[in-house]
Design a protein around this nucleic acid. Structure first.
Lengths: 192, 192
DNA sequence: GTCTATAGCGTGATAGAC
DNA sequence: GTCTATCACGCTATAGAC
């Protein structure tokens, strides 16, 4: 089972570093130390290999989000902690960075990506609804919209940080998002 | 001048559709109708061609933003109108979609991208400062953070829309951003 | 200034020995 | 299950005629 795992591990790194379209099987073999035959023995080809690797990445990111969002603290504290998670900003999001690639969207790689964002959005919305129940948030707040802004701030923060080649752009962005959410709490407690 | 312009026009479309790394000169020639020699007569190679095309895209997006942000209306109205501009959400941002590509960040294509976001950020911050002066916004609002969240919401909105293959994800995101900014105005008028 | 032809290399995938 | 050798093709770039 080790060679197969090595191939997947190398693929996960390369998907992050160079994306799918520019990831050559030859380079995966070099980085993993495996031979040509192993790749095509364990997988049907490049797409199959990348999909399996991506599904592992999806599970990892999902778990990391769940630990915080479904963990301890009040709902809005958990969202704040989610926004404060350590992120390699200039490297980009391991999942979001693949989204612009047309081969990704048009292949089996699309499913785990779509699933990841849908799941994360649902979780965030659930936490926001809990915040309403607890009175942390005003009842008139549109939870799907706020959940979307939270995810978009993170994804956009990656883009801004990478474009500027400066990790602090992510911090600035997410501090801004936190401030806006805090404002929402204040507004909520004023009316509710 | 026409063949050169045709090459640039085709490149602008391909940079949007497939990105830089996956854009082959051969395909540019096909789409533009030009022959092999023309490309290497007018440009030093793929990178040079792409950089010139990207600089035109930068100018176009910049102009579109300036028309709204430096146009009529109160500062916060202008930002709202900027967030309401028509966007081909699932196609992705013509500039932001290139940011994850490593060859882009490590080449001369990085400069126009960096410049675009820096310029847009400065413009947004300027408009937010105007909003403070007019009393539309509380003095304690951190303008660099809010400017960053605005840009990130748009960039993230593109990612979410493309991941879901649904333009409405962009609308939901930007409606959320508008709602948060409106909340900021309310909070500002309460304290200022 | 534009064309066709082609170089030199890397791609994703397969063949077949071990 | 893993290896080396190799295929057919596409890539970016150049050569050289017109």
């Amino acid at each position: 089972m080790s060679t197969k795992d090595d191939l997947i591990a190398a693929t996960k790194e390369l998907l992050w570093a160079v994306g799918y379209e520019s990831m050559s099987p030859r380079r995966v073999l070099q980085e993993s130390g495996a031979g040509q035959g192993s790749l095509y023995h364990h997988f049907t080809g490049k797409e199959d290999l990348a999909r399996r690797a991506l599904e592992e990445v999806e599970a990892e990111l999902r778990q990391r989000a769940e630990e915080v969002l479904l963990g301890e603290g009040t709902p809005l504290e958990r969202i704040d902690r989610f926004l404060s998670l350590k992120r390699a900003a200039t490297r980009g999001c391991r999942i979001g960075r693949l989204v612009p690639e047309s081969e990704v969207i048009e292949s089996s790689l699309h499913a785990p990506i779509k699933r990841y964002f849908r799941h994360l959005g649902n979780m965030l919305e659930g936490v926001l609804l809990q915040a309403k129940e607890r009175g942390e948030l005003a009842a008139e707040v549109n939870t799907p919209q706020i959940a979307a802004v939270i995810m978009a701030s993170i994804q956009g923060g990656y883009i801004l940080a990478r474009a500027a080649q400066d990790d602090s752009a992510m911090t600035t962005t997410l501090d801004g998002a936190k401030a806006l959410l805090a404002q929402l709490r204040r507004a909520g407690s004023a009316t509710g």
